[in-house]
Computed example of a mutant assay.
Amino acid sequence: MSEQHAELSREFIEQQRQRLEGLRRHFLGDDEERRAFEEQHGDEAAEFEDTAQDSAQEEVLQAQHDVDDRRVHDIERALQKIADGTYGYSDLSGQPIPKARLEVTPEAILTLDEERARERGR
């Protein structure tokens, strides 16, 4: 086990798990509320959105949705890594992810360099 991973105490990992679960509720809660609204109002919401938004707004909303989807995926993966005991290691290289990065981005599953490469590839 590397020194980097040794820095991740059980308390730190538990705090991260709680933060990740809160983030998951934040992102998925919005989807659940939207689904409930659409079930209640049917196509009415879609028709209103179609007439109220221009194509530029739709592009922005789609881009935000894509970012949110990626974050939810990374949150789910980070929670799985906590359960597996591999939290704090990159999914790509297996290299340790610095604690400071995990503090800022608890759902980080890649090192910063790997994340930058992933962003360039999109």
Score class of each variant (00 low, 15 high):
Glu3Gly: 11
Glu3Ile: 13
Glu3His: 11
Gln4Ile: 07
Ala6Val: 10
Ala6Glu: 13
Ala6Trp: 07
Ser9Tyr: 05
Arg10Phe: 03
Glu11Asp: 15
Glu11Gly: 12
Glu11Trp: 08
Ile13Met: 05
Ile13Thr: 07
Glu14Val: 03
Gln15His: 04
Gln15Ser: 09
Gln16His: 06
Leu20Glu: 05
Glu21Asp: 06
Leu23Tyr: 09
Arg24Pro: 03
Phe27Gly: 05
Phe27Leu: 14
Leu28Val: 15
Leu28Thr: 14
Leu28Gly: 04
Asp30Ser: 12
Asp30Ala: 14
Asp30Asn: 10
Asp31Gly: 04
Glu33Lys: 15
Glu33Met: 11
Arg35Gln: 14
Ala36Ile: 02
Ala36Ser: 08
Phe37Asn: 08
Glu38Leu: 07
Glu38Asp: 12
Glu39Lys: 14
Asp43Tyr: 07
Asp43Ser: 04
Ala45His: 05
Ala45Tyr: 15
Phe48Gln: 14
Phe48Thr: 13
Asp50Thr: 08
Thr51Gln: 09
Ala52Pro: 05
Gln53Phe: 04
Gln53Val: 00
Asp54Thr: 10
Asp54Lys: 08
Asp54Glu: 10
Asp54Gly: 15
Ala56Pro: 03
Gln57Thr: 11
Gln57Ile: 09
Glu59Asp: 14
Glu59Ile: 04
Val60Met: 06
Leu61Lys: 07
Gln62Lys: 02
Gln62Ser: 10
His65Val: 05
Asp66Gln: 12
Arg70Gln: 13
Arg70Thr: 10
His73Cys: 01
His73Ser: 11
His73Lys: 13
Ile75Pro: 02
Ile75Met: 03
Ala78Phe: 02
Ala78Gln: 00
Lys81Asp: 05
Lys81Thr: 02
Ile82Asp: 01
Ala83Thr: 09
Asp84Trp: 00
Asp91Asn: 10
Leu92Lys: 15
Leu92Ala: 09
Leu92Thr: 08
Gly94Leu: 07
Gly94Asp: 06
Gly94Tyr: 09
Ile97Arg: 00
Pro98Asn: 04
Pro98Val: 03
Lys99Ser: 13
Ala100Gly: 08
Ala100Ser: 15
Arg101Lys: 06
Arg101Glu: 15
Glu103Asn: 11
Val104Ala: 14
Thr105Gln: 12
Thr105Met: 12
Thr105Trp: 11
Pro106Ala: 01
Thr111Arg: 01
Asp113Lys: 09
Glu115Asp: 00
Glu115Gly: 03
Arg116Trp: 04
Ala117Thr: 02
Ala117Glu: 02
Ala117Asp: 00
Arg118Asp: 12
Glu119Met: 11
Glu119Ala: 09
Arg120Val: 08
Gly121Ser: 14
Arg122Lys: 11
Arg122Gly: 02
